[in-house]
């Protein structure tokens, strides 16, 4: 089952995919991408590694409890919704934006970004959890 070629490919592809997933996630607000796609790509990276090296090593090296990712993600999404409620008393899920810096390096940070990160983590956790569980059971 374990093939040398896949293992080598996985070793090099995986970091690349993880970084790619973050990039896709981050640029999602302005260009194609976002939490869903980023999470799927990030999850695929880990699945690829698991397919190449097997479950045990993956769990030991990368992720032991993918369910934690799901909970953290859900909590982040939920909290981002409560943020405006707690600070401004606005309705649930009102977006709040803050601008850091000015000029060409201005960076806008807001609760939707936090929300999208929650989506990213949940999707990634769900994907990894499902595939790893199925692998554990079937293979």
């Amino acid at each position: 089952m374990k093939s040398q070629i896949i293992q080598i490919a996985a070793t090099y592809l995986m970091p690349f995919l993880l970084v790619l997933s973050l990039v896709v996630f981050y640029r999602g607000h302005n260009e194609p991408g976002g939490g869903f796609i980023g999470g799927l790509i990030g999850g695929s990276a880990i699945i690829l590694y698991a397919g190449a090296y097997g479950l045990e090593i993956t769990k030991k090296l990368w992720i032991n409890r993918p369910t934690a990712l799901i909970w953290i993600g859900l909590a982040m999404a939920l909290l981002s919704g409560f943020f405006a409620y707690l600070t401004h008393g606005s309705p649930f899920m009102t977006a709040v934006w803050v601008q850091i810096g000015s000029g060409p390096f201005a960076l806008k940070v807001g609760t939707p970004l936090l929300f999208d990160l929650g989506v990213y983590l949940t999707v990634m956790g769900m994907l990894v959890k499902v595939v790893l569980t199925v692998m554990e059971e079937v293979l």
């Binding site: 607000h29 260009e31 991408g33 999404a77 899920m93 977006a95 939707p112 929300f115 999208d116």
Partner: peptide
């Protein structure tokens, strides 16, 4: 929504619930 990708803004801001 401060985003150029309308679909993404809908997902994470307008219709985040």
């Amino acid at each position: 929504g401060f985003g150029k990708n309308v679909v993404n803004v809908i997902l994470v801001d307008f219709r985040a619930l």
